[in-house]
Computed example of a mutant assay.
Amino acid sequence: MNNKGELLIESLLSLVIITIALIPIFFTINNIYGINNKVNLQSKHIINQKNLLEYLKSLEYKKIEKKVGNKKFKNIKEAFKYFNISTNNYYNLDKEISVSITKTNECFSLFKTEYIYKLKVGNYEDYYIP
């Protein structure tokens, strides 16, 4: 008999099944892109913090001595401007960064009274040794 309608119904049914199978795959791919974007932003923020810490370690003693204290910045650009550091090598993010410069009791040299400073940028710490 007449099998023409049967082919159309089979095609529509297979399209529905394929669509139902592909929807979760598309949601998973979208989720992966979102998570990947968050991870990239977090790693850029970590790189900014470590770069700022290294720049602070390279400052002159007189400059670091004047900047003792705790400071919070709205973003990395504001922090780089505060410390008069070139803004060429950073990722422009709008994440808050906290910087703490603390004077220790130890002197670096017996002949000069240049103190060692503890630097903390975000979660990362290091020491400034003149």
Rank of each mutant, 00 (worst) to 15 (best):
N88Q: 11
E106K: 02
N40A: 04
L15A: 11
E54F: 10
K112V: 02
T19V: 07
I23L: 13
Y33E: 13
I76A: 05
N51F: 03
N51Q: 03
I23Q: 05
Y33F: 13
K74Y: 09
V121Q: 01
A21K: 07
I101T: 02
S43R: 02
E60D: 15
V121G: 03
N70G: 13
S98E: 10
I116W: 02
A21C: 09
S100G: 06
S86R: 12
K72D: 13
I25N: 12
K63M: 07
I85T: 01
Y117C: 03
T102A: 14
L22V: 10
V16S: 10
K118W: 05
E78P: 04
H45K: 01
L56E: 06
Y61L: 04
I25P: 09
I25F: 13
I46F: 08
V39Q: 03
E54V: 12
Y33L: 14
K62W: 11
K57Q: 15
I129R: 07
I20F: 11
K71N: 08
M1S: 09
N36D: 03
L12T: 07
L13C: 07
E106F: 04
N31Q: 13
K67H: 10
K118L: 02
F108S: 09
T87W: 05
L22C: 14
K50S: 06
F83P: 03
K74G: 08
Y82R: 04
K66C: 08
F73L: 00
E54Q: 11
I29G: 10
Q42W: 04
D94S: 10
N2M: 08
C107I: 14
I17C: 11
L41I: 00
K63H: 10
M1Y: 06
Y82D: 09
L56F: 09
Y82V: 05
V121C: 01
L7Y: 15
I29F: 14
I101E: 00
F26A: 14
